[in-house]
């Protein structure tokens, strides 16, 4: 059975160890943000997740509590009678033992849910094997990221989130383009055209820090240092490596960005967000102030790439950085 994950911080390894197939919802064919009529203030990504979950008959969807929109989207799906859904409580704080305890207990609870929908109880060996495999692939993807073509990397990360496979991203063609960082929420296949549009405008995404980019590959497992129960390593390796805007304080996000922006000589930030996403929109000014870089807000629309007006803004943004 497919189990669709809507956050990169809910470990796919845990689902796979239960004998079920984790799928990053971002890559699902019939996941279509931007195609639904939206009530005022509703995030298109959350709405698409709700519609997707409501329509499912033979799969499950795991929602995170990371934002109000998805949290309440879960409430809406429950109201329609869909029962094969699960709300995973991702703590916003990260400095305390009780936050770690919440994360751990949520993974245990998710395990119970997976058993209830037909999964099998994972043995430590199976879990360890899954973690070794996925940990290795994450590492490969992260190592190849700086030299990869932006679109190739987006595709490779999407593939990893879809079926756990590693497909080496092609190298970036050498060109004298302006290095940019793409920072923000989910960046889906229909949006990848934006990467081409950035290149056509004279820029290049040197750092894809969206929810479906390099940032999503942060979980890392130190299995060699802990020969005991791999579950403890899973908990720690995921919880300690969440890098996201919803965390409070969200200093981890900034600590993660800082060396990467510097090492890749980034000259501007494109802040990618869905309409109604307060968490990302509110960071625009802080990103400017923290890194001293120009920031362009781009809103995810229904059409592939950027809408004409947004494209115009993007072109002007890159031009000003020349």
């Amino acid at each position: 059975m497919d189990v669709f994950l809507t956050s990169p911080w809910i470990p796919a390894e845990w689902v796979r160890a239960h004998g079920l197939q984790p799928r990053g919802i971002w890559s699902a064919e019939n996941f279509q943000p931007g195609t639904w009529p939206l009530s005022a203030g509703v995030c298109a990504f959350a709405e698409a997740t709700v519609r997707f979950a409501e329509a499912l008959t033979d799969s499950a969807v795991i929602f995170p509590t990371a934002c109000d929109q998805l949290r309440r989207g879960f409430d809406a799906v429950i109201l329609r009678g869909q029962r094969r859904i699960f709300l995973f409580n991702l703590p916003a704080t990260w400095q305390t033992a009780s936050a770690g305890q919440i994360f751990r207990s949520e993974l245990e609870r998710l395990g119970q849910f997976l058993l209830a929908i037909g999964g099998r109880s994972p043995s430590p060996e199976v879990l360890r094997q899954e973690m070794v495999q996925s940990g290795g692939r994450r590492k490969q993807l992260l190592e190849s990221a700086p030299a990869s073509s932006p679109r190739g990397l987006a595709e490779a990360v999407a593939r990893f989130h879809w079926d756990g496979a590693f497909s080496p991203p092609p190298l970036a063609a050498p060109a004298n383009q302006i290095p940019l960082a793409l920072v923000g929420g989910p960046f889906l296949a229909p949006h990848w055209k934006l990467l081409d549009e950035i290149e056509a405008a004279g820029g290049r995404v040197a750092l894809n820090a969206t929810e479906t980019g390099e940032r999503s590959l942060c979980p890392a497992f130190e299995l060699d240092a802990a020969p005991g129960n791999p579950f403890d390593v899973l908990v720690q390796g995921c919880f300690d490596n969440i890098v996201d805007v919803f965390q409070r304080p969200n200093t981890r996000l900034y600590s993660w960005l800082k060396p990467r922006l510097a090492s890749r000589h980034v000259r501007g930030i494109v802040l990618w967000h869905f309409t109604g996403c307060d968490l990302w929109r509110a960071e625009a000014q802080t990103l400017r102030e923290t890194f001293g870089l120009p920031v362009l807000l781009l809103e995810a629309g229904g059409e592939p790439g950027a809408a004409p007006r947004e494209l115009n803004r993007l072109q002007a943004f890159v031009e000003t950085l020349r």
């Binding site: 509590t65 934002c67 109000d68 929109q69 949290r71 409580n89 703590p91 916003a92 704080t93 919803f246 409070r248 304080p249 969200n250 996403c277 307060d278 968490l279 929109r281 509110a282 960071e283 000014q285 802080t286 102030e289 923290t290």
Partner: peptide, 20 residues
């Protein structure tokens, strides 16, 4: 002191901005 987690995104985002 500010509660976080299951709270409004806009409030959380504004409070984070305040801290910054």
């Amino acid at each position: 002191v500010c509660s976080t987690g299951a709270v409004c995104d806009d409030f959380s985002a504004i409070a984070q901005r305040l801290e910054h």
